[in-house]
Amino acid sequence: SKTSNTIRVFLPNKQRTVVNVRNGMSLHDCLMKALKVRG
């Protein structure tokens, strides 16, 4: 089974995003990807 960790990230202006960290990806990469999608 694939394991994925879901991390809630609290952003300024009362924004919130959820990042799924996959195996083999660093938290930083996942964060940058999530913020790019939002931006």
Rank of each mutant, 00 (worst) to 15 (best):
T6L: 01
S26T: 14
V19A: 10
H28Y: 11
N23C: 15
C30W: 00
R22S: 07
L27M: 14
R22L: 14
V37L: 05
L35R: 00
K14S: 07
K33L: 07
L31P: 00
R8H: 07
K33R: 11
V18T: 15
M25E: 02
V18I: 11
K33Q: 15
S1R: 12
K33I: 03
K33N: 08
G24D: 05
R16G: 03
Q15E: 15
G24Y: 07
S26R: 10
L11Q: 00
V19E: 07
L31Q: 00
D29R: 07
R38Q: 07
N20Y: 13
N5D: 10
R38S: 01
N23T: 07
H28N: 09
V21M: 05
V9G: 01
P12Q: 03
L35P: 00
T17S: 08
I7T: 05
V18E: 02
G24A: 04
I7M: 03
N5S: 15
R16L: 04
V18A: 13
V18F: 03
G39C: 02
V21I: 12
S4G: 10
H28Q: 14
S4D: 12
V18D: 03
C30R: 04
K2Q: 15
R8P: 05
D29N: 11
K14Q: 03
S26D: 01
N5K: 12
G39R: 12
K2M: 10
L11V: 15
P12S: 01
R16P: 00
R16C: 10
V19T: 15
C30I: 12
V37E: 02
R38H: 01
R38C: 00
S4I: 09
K14M: 09
R8C: 14
R22C: 11
G24S: 11
T3P: 13
A34P: 08
K14R: 11
K36R: 09
M25V: 11
M32T: 12
S26H: 07
N5T: 11
S1A: 07
V18L: 03
I7S: 00
L27V: 15
T17A: 09
R38L: 01
S1C: 11
I7V: 08
K2N: 10
T6R: 14
K14N: 14
